[in-house]
Design a protein around this nucleic acid. Structure first.
Lengths: 168, 168
DNA sequence: TTGGAATGTCAACAAAGCTGACGTATTGTT
DNA sequence: AACAATACGTCAGCTTTGTTGACATTCCAA
């Protein structure tokens, strides 16, 4: 499908020409750059990268989470995550404690220092998000979330919804 | 701002708790993974990466664009882009012609082979996008685009709008 | 005409992903 | 009790894609 020019296939999607969808793709690309720009700037001054940000974010979000769980959420290999986690633990931003029920597991928590970094990063990111939301308005925000949810892979939507249920 | 817990500062943004904004952030993270998943899968079978995809996309979008112009759009260094471009040219997907007016410039075009790859990638990406759009509905799509636009950096919005004007 | 700015290329390096192999501790199964 | 499976950590080495630095070519303006 969509092999011609302006394919307006079907009847319920007349509002979706290839060009309009393409524009959505580019919007996604440019917006994601803005989305990560502010935390990236902060991280650069601290010798950390986006990978550290993600780890810190999800440990904050799910305190006590295990390495394996984090792996699944982030979608990277344990070797890749381990490199990041090692530096965060060595620098005293994250604590790793042996599991009580299952001693093979390590439960991850942010230290005060880690929580401070998390707050600095998420404040920056939230500020941009919040200002975008404010400019676009509540209905736009609802639509934004709907489309993003529909764009996720099934298993990722599961992580997202799980989080959603936990905090709503 | 947003330094406490559920800061609902201001009067016009009562609908934006820190937790809700945070959920938007995670939606963005998970959705972007879905957004790139299909093209990534295709690219992996061809020894190309996401950087090649981006280059091919924007050359298709703006045929005859210069290296410098592409640089600004993609937001990478010219050395980084050059590596990607070099392989694309060597593999016969992109043609680089010396500028007529300014011989320092190189004008970039997709070859037939390059256009074929572009179509394969963008078809995959558009399919997911289109299905997300369909599930969410037209109003949601409008809101989606509004929020994304508001999230971009100023200069990126300029690129985006320029493209928008050109093709609408 | 000459020196500086702009454009693009080559080289070397860093961050962060990957695979594969292996070791250890713990848990679960038979 | 023996054995397989799971969770985690680590070493080694590779790939992609970003970075800076050095350099050649071309254009333009003083």
């Amino acid at each position: 499908m969509s092999q011609g020019g302006q394919s307006q296939s079907g009847q319920s999607l007349l509002f979706l020409t290839d060009e309009q969808v393409r524009k959505g793709i580019e919007a996604m690309f440019f917006a994601y750059r803005g989305f990560t720009a502010d935390p990236d700037r902060i991280l650069q001054t601290k010798a950390y990268g986006r990978a550290h940000h993600r780890a810190v974010h999800f440990i904050h979000r799910s305190p006590g989470t295990t390495v394996n769980n984090l792996l699944n959420i982030l979608g990277v290999t344990k070797q890749s995550l381990n490199r990041v986690l090692r530096t965060l633990i060595a620098d005293g931003l994250v604590s790793s404690t042996v599991g009580r029920a299952d001693k093979r597991e390590r439960h991850l928590h942010l230290t005060d220092k880690g929580a401070a970094l998390e707050r600095e990063l998420s404040d920056a990111q939230r500020d941009r998000m919040r200002s975008a939301y404010r400019r676009a308005g509540p209905e736009a925000v609802a639509g934004f979330r709907e489309v993003l949810e529909a764009m996720m892979d099934e298993d990722m939507r599961h992580h997202y919804v799980a989080i959603k249920d936990r905090t709503d």
